[in-house]
């Protein structure tokens, strides 16, 4: 465990807290992509199958359960709970996620670490997480403006991935047998997707005013 990874996990938890607060207190899922939340639920449910046989630490296992529970709760609330479910706009949030799931599944089958079923599913979840934010970014693009809390949510997610990149660099230089090409590649792609958002997020927050984040 190193500080980058710890802060990365805390930032990931923060993103869940922000989103859960927004949809439960704000009673609205406007501006939140249910598609992205569904992809995250698939990512965590598939990646953490090893909960039952891989025990690395209590911290690890506890957060796996937390991430599965939170992502499932978010999907449930936006899909089924009133009044949030009425604030979700299927016309706007209509990114064809099958075009993300399909290629990731093929990639998981072809490029993985060990050719066992779990390794294929695990690799699938790594690739899927890299692109899971796309429906959300498309939704924000369509809306042009980003609601304040939503912008903090996406920023927290971006920070989590950026900190994980630093964690991999740190581990690469401090551990001798640390090699995770799949994770490094997918994580770099994923962090790249946030760069554009961060630029607009920074522009809008720079003035210190809470001007809404404007995407072109």
């Amino acid at each position: 465990m190193n500080i980058f990874r710890f802060l990365g996990d805390m930032s990931h938890i923060l993103s869940f807290v922000i989103l859960l607060l927004k949809i439960t207190q704000g009673k609205s899922a406007a501006g939140i992509s249910l598609r992205t939340q569904e992809l995250y639920m698939i990512v965590f449910c598939s990646r953490y199958l090893d909960l039952f046989w891989n025990f690395s630490s209590l911290y690890n296992s506890f957060l796996k359960v937390v991430f599965i529970a939170c992502s499932s709760a978010i999907v449930y609330i936006i899909r089924f709970k009133s009044p949030q479910k009425d604030t979700w706009n299927p016309e706007l949030d209509n990114f064809p996620i099958q075009y993300l799931i399909g290629p990731c599944a093929v990639a998981g089958l072809l490029i993985n670490q060990d050719w066992t079923p779990f390794e294929m599913i695990w690799a699938f979840s790594i690739y899927l997480e890299a692109v899971a934010i796309l429906p959300q970014l498309f939704l924000l693009q369509k809306q042009g403006e980003v609601e304040n809390l939503t912008s903090h949510y996406v920023a927290a997610l971006g920070a989590y991935r950026g900190l994980y990149l630093m964690n991999w660099v740190y581990r690469y230089f401090t551990e001798d047998d640390y090699l995770q090409r799949i994770v490094w590649f997918a994580g770099t792609v994923q962090t790249g997707l946030y760069i554009d958002f961060f630029y607009h997020y920074y522009q809008s927050k720079r003035g210190g005013l809470s001007r809404p984040v404007k995407l072109p």
Binding site: H12, N54, S56, L63, D114, W122, Q180
Partner: peptide, 10 residues
């Protein structure tokens, strides 16, 4: 390391 195969990250 063994079964974990480096999957000690979330």
């Amino acid at each position: 390391a063994g079964r974990l195969r480096g999957k000690d990250e979330l």
